[in-house]
Design a protein around this nucleic acid. Structure first.
Length: 289
DNA sequence: AAGCTGACCAACCGCGTCTCT
DNA sequence: GAGAGACGCGGTTGGTCAGCT
């Protein structure tokens, strides 16, 4: 499909952002909102490509970005999610409020990956997209580079040259087709529930929206048959000040099939040796709300 | 003090996918 | 259904800095 020339445009700034550029971008987005990255630089008076603006905003300027070191809890979550999802950094970042995919990716590559390998823990490489053209090229490239005795600087130059000619190489690579279900958007609403210690849900939903939904004959809690304990154990709940009070996902009745997928996901999440299965699991569907 | 090395991380690149016409 | 533009993602690069020799 068509690709935007973007950063190749002559006369655009590249490299580190200045405070003035940051201010221009921040002010513009605060006034006009995100989106339209293509036209944003022009409208905001920035000599940057839209892609660069988006990246700067998403990874650095966004007000909800959490600063500071990644804590042990976050680290543990990253490790667990990576074992399930592979290098799908955006999905992992989606479970860590305030953290960006870039940050998690960097943290993984510079800290966790090495540490886990050092501990003799097998680190899952690649993703379900590991059989894509790009991934195969990458594997092929690293293989070639590893087999050469070139020094560091010439290796980089060689990589660049290879990148320019690799179109010819790819024709010889065997293609493995992976069928991924088309991502489906659905919108579970949040309900709040009170929990009785070790015994699951004590009461039916009490929130206003939940009550009105029930009155309209929408999905009830009993209909859902979701294993609440699994949700809690899976970490996909939101604890408020009261530790016995949780928010859980609620699926509209039209999304019964997706509810099944959701339950399947948690079963996989809690089972041993689930990586192969997850490679074919439509996880994109689960995170697109 | 100077040079080297590796770690870190912001930014870039290229591709796949989505959306609109 | 096809094509083009826009967006989002993951891999990679390169500048900076701290620690070591």
């Amino acid at each position: 499909m068509g690709r935007a020339p973007c950063c190749s445009k002559v006369g655009l700034h590249r490299g580190p952002w200045s405070p003035e550029e940051d201010a221009l971008l921040t002010n513009y987005i605060q006034c006009h909102g995100e989106g339209n990255w293509r036209s944003l630089p022009k409208n905001a008076g920035l000599l940057r490509c839209g892609k660069s603006c988006r990246l700067r905003w998403m990874n650095y300027l966004r007000p909800d970005i959490k600063r500071g070191n990644i804590g042990p809890d976050e680290e543990d979550l990253i490790i667990r999610l990576h074992s399930l999802l592979g290098n799908r950094w955006s999905l992992i970042a989606g479970r860590l409020p305030g953290r960006t995919d870039n940050e998690i990716k960097n943290y993984w590559n510079s800290h966790l990956s090495k540490r886990l390998k050092g501990q003799g823990i097998e680190v899952r490489e690649g993703t379900s997209k590991g059989t894509t053209k790009r991934a195969r090229i990458s594997q092929k490239k690293s293989h070639n580079v590893n087999n050469s005795n070139i020094n560091h600087s010439s290796k980089k130059q060689q990589d660049k040259r290879k990148r320019k000619t690799e179109g010819e190489d790819t024709a010889e690579i065997t293609r493995t087709k992976i069928y991924m279900p088309k991502p489906t958007k659905f919108t579970p609403t949040l309900r709040s529930y009170d929990l009785i210690e070790n015994s699951g849900v004590s009461e039916v939903p009490k929130t206003e929206s939940a009550t009105s939904q029930e009155q309209k004959g929408d999905t009830t809690m009993e209909d859902l048959e979701i294993n609440w304990y699994d949700i809690k154990e899976g970490g996909f709940f939101f604890e408020e000040d009261d530790p016995n009070h949780v928010l859980a996902f609620d699926f509209p009745s039209k999304d019964r099939l997706l509810q099944g997928l959701y339950q399947e996901y948690y079963e996989l999440l809690n089972s041993e040796g689930n990586q192969a299965q997850l490679n074919s699991f439509p996880d994109q569907s689960l995170f697109l709300w």
